[in-house]
Design a protein around this nucleic acid. Structure first.
Lengths: 203, 203
DNA sequence: GTCATAACGGGACTCCAGTTCCATTAGCTG
DNA sequence: CAGCTAATGGAACTGGAGTCCCGTTATGAC
């Protein structure tokens, strides 16, 4: 029996489709940064992207679907971590990068909007978790290197160290509303390092 | 001239108005816990509260206004902090309380929804920041007591210690999506304490 | 008790986000 | 380059969130 398995995709990801996605992703980022998630209007995104409203609704269904894809798109652009040879410096670099991102007039509101979207929609939440998993795994490499240098003992939860750096920064932005600057970033990095060292001693 | 200054309020906060607010607050909490912030419909809240739709729109204007008032209402119910005589134990108690709240099938989604609302609306954000300021100030008393007992040196940023306890828990819920349990709570509390001690040594 | 009016309730109305339908454009295959 | 059809674009349509109008209720002052 010659069943023709795996039909030739029947899809057409060629030039135009990709072009449309790029334009819509950029437009969605702009719109989110400007009006936040709740102010997101797919018709407005379509206008900005110079694309038919119908196309946006057909391919992304609704606002959370669009946000989920935007996150996947953002995750595709990998950021390289630093490697200064000192864990304290690497963590401070990471913390300052997060602060700069969250304070950035475009990126800050975008991240807030995306997090807001994730609180109400499972697929957006999954996309967000994947995004952070990638970032955390990337920077966890710094901690691995530190362990290799003997700055931290083996058995340290490397991902937890990186999470500990970002956590107080996001907490300020999302919950308490306290200001965010380089001093706060450095304190967050130092606190994460102190916690990791204390945890090592306790074992 | 006998100008009658300060006319008798011209407002009528009597029985009915207060009753309506209570009913709407409860209904809003239910609705947020069930459908999240983006699924919040004032007409639905009105129905649950057995109150006219017009009334809800007149008094709270829109969804973010309702959320802002709900937060004020939640802040009014003060929770008493613990006082075990040991800072580590107090911080762990706090961390476990936060975890239990965020994992609670009703409170968890409610907090997520409220945070989502705050990302897109200034007045909701202010209400949220006030809410956390009250909670943090309350629990900072534990750190004050610890300083008085000599567990920590004077000059410690007491609010920062409390923020450091909650931060990793909220980060997991809102960003990374990692699970939340008592072990994580204890680790967060211990990390906050370690960071505070390290910060004290550094000074 | 009586009165003035703050606050509420019901229902009609408006407006626009989201859907549907169909014509048009442009990837892919041969 | 010719043909098939995936994918897009325009425009009319629709449902329900939010508004408006006006009659009704009940609070507080006397």
């Amino acid at each position: 029996m010659t069943v023709e398995q795996d039909p030739p995709a029947a899809t057409r990801p060629g030039g135009r489709t990709a072009r449309v996605r790029e334009a819509v992703m950029r437009a969605a980022g702009d719109a989110l940064a400007e009006h936040g998630f709740e102010g997101l209007d797919l018709a407005d995104v379509a206008r900005r992207a110079d694309v038919g409203k119908t196309t946006v609704y057909r391919r992304w269904t609704n606002t959370t679907g669009l946000v989920a894809d935007l996150l996947a798109h953002m995750a595709e652009e990998s950021v390289s971590r630093s490697d200064t040879g000192s864990l304290r410096e690497d963590l401070r670099t990471n913390a300052r990068l997060v602060v700069r991102t969250l304070n950035d007039p475009r990126q800050g509101p975008l991240f807030k909007a995306v997090i807001a979207a994730a609180t109400g929609d499972e697929s957006a939440a999954e996309a967000l978790h994947r995004f952070y998993a990638i970032r955390i795994a990337e920077w966890a490499g710094c901690v691995d290197a530190a362990i290799a240098r003997g700055e931290l003992p083996p058995g340290t939860d490397t991902h937890e160290v990186i999470r500990a750096v970002s956590a107080p920064l996001y907490y300020r932005v999302l919950c308490s509303g306290d200001p965010l600057d380089e001093a706060v970033a450095d304190r967050a990095a130092d606190a994460a390092l102190a916690a990791a060292l204390a945890d090592a001693y306790a074992r």
